[in-house]
């Protein structure tokens, strides 16, 4: 049991940190530009594929630095020639633009790299077991992922709280109009933030690609969860996104470890298990089965009771 708890915690934190890498960029974009970027997970996928391609041609360590930059440039280009054109029509068309973009990116990736998973491997340098506990090993690459995500989180924190550009971004998170009034080139800031956010997503892709499978559906699977993280944490709140990422990572991992159903709970308190009726299936379902659904339930509940999210200060 103890090893299950330890490994679940490790995996949960790792998954949470990965989510945060993606969510931090998304929440920046969302808060500043008001764009719910449906294509954000597509940038994550692009990162994984760029990383794969570059590590085929050159080396994983080159890919680690170059691929996120490439994705960031793609992101900036999308903002400059796509979103900015749509911006004048309002927020809904912007969102729909990213919706369509996610579609197109997935198709293009399928065309270029095929529909099957690609053989994106852990670099030889990190292809060993970091430690062994109760007979279960933990791969070094996962520790590396964890380190990278924590490092990025710290750097992000430093930039946002200690640097001038960070102050502008922070100001723009809460008072976007005021920042524009003060003479900052808001479109340029937008482009940079969008590029930076996409680059972060790309980085997440580069490091997640070898650990998880790099395939065309990887964006689609992760997309909706990101919105849950951002909205649950509170719009425009990086600490909120951080807490939400970890919370959802841990909940998802621990839910899997629990094998009890509602029916078991009823039996435990001495009640009969309902066997008939439309909802009878509900009593049979174990916590492990509904694990992946829990984040959506959390999203709906928090929005009903606290529309600003966990740590957010504004709704729109």
């Amino acid at each position: 049991m103890l090893e299950l708890v330890i490994f679940s915690t490790l995996n949960g934190v790792l998954y949470g940190m990965l989510l945060f890498l993606l969510a931090s960029g998304l929440t920046l974009i969302f808060s500043m530009m008001g764009v719910l970027n449906f294509a954000h997970a597509s940038f994550y996928m692009l990162g994984a594929y760029f990383g794969f391609q570059l590590s085929q041609w050159l080396d994983f360590w080159v890919a680690l630095f170059v691929a996120p930059v490439c994705v960031g440039l793609v992101g900036a280009a999308v903002e400059r020639w796509g979103l900015r054109t749509v911006h004048k029509w309002g927020h809904v068309p912007e969102l729909l633009f990213t919706f369509g973009l996610a579609f197109v990116v997935e198709e293009l990736v399928q065309m270029v790299w095929g529909k099957l998973p690609v053989d994106y491997r852990v670099p030889a340098l990190l292809d060993f077991h970091a430690f062994e506990l109760f007979g279960t090993t933990y791969p070094a690459f996962r520790m590396f992922m964890l380190l990278i995500s924590v490092a990025i989180f710290l750097v992000l924190l430093m930039i946002l709280t200690r640097s001038r550009i960070g102050l502008i971004i922070q100001a723009a998170l809460t008072h976007p109009n005021m920042v524009a009034m003060l003479g900052h080139n808001v479109p340029k800031v937008f482009m940079m933030v969008f590029g930076f956010g996409s680059g972060l997503a790309g980085l997440a892709g580069v490091i997640a690609g070898p650990a998880l499978v790099t395939q065309p559906s990887m964006a689609h699977v992760l997309g909706p969860i990101l919105f849950v993280v951002v909205v649950f944490g509170g719009l425009g709140s990086l600490p909120g996104a951080f807490i939400a990422s970890l919370l959802i990572g841990l909940i998802q991992t621990f839910a899997i470890a629990i094998n009890y159903s509602l029916g078991d709970a009823l039996s435990a308190i001495g009640m009969a298990r309902p066997m008939q009726g439309v909802l009878s299936d509900l009593w049979q379902v174990t916590v492990a089965q509904v694990g992946p659904v829990v984040p959506y339930l959390m999203l709906v509940l928090i929005l009903i009771f606290r529309p600003t999210g966990l740590m957010g200060t504004r709704e729109n």
Binding site: M1, E3, L4, F7, S8, N11, G12, Y15, G135, T136, R142, A211, L212, S217, M218, V221, L222, Q252, T253, I256, A257, T286, A288, Q289, G291, P292, V293
Partner: peptide
């Protein structure tokens, strides 16, 4: 005896931990 959602899991590490345990 595990059932997991169809094509929704990105990381099977928790399931593997369970199998191991």
């Amino acid at each position: 005896d595990e059932l997991h959602p169809l094509a929704k899991i990105t990381d099977f590490a928790p399931y593997v931990a369970k199998i191991k345990a």
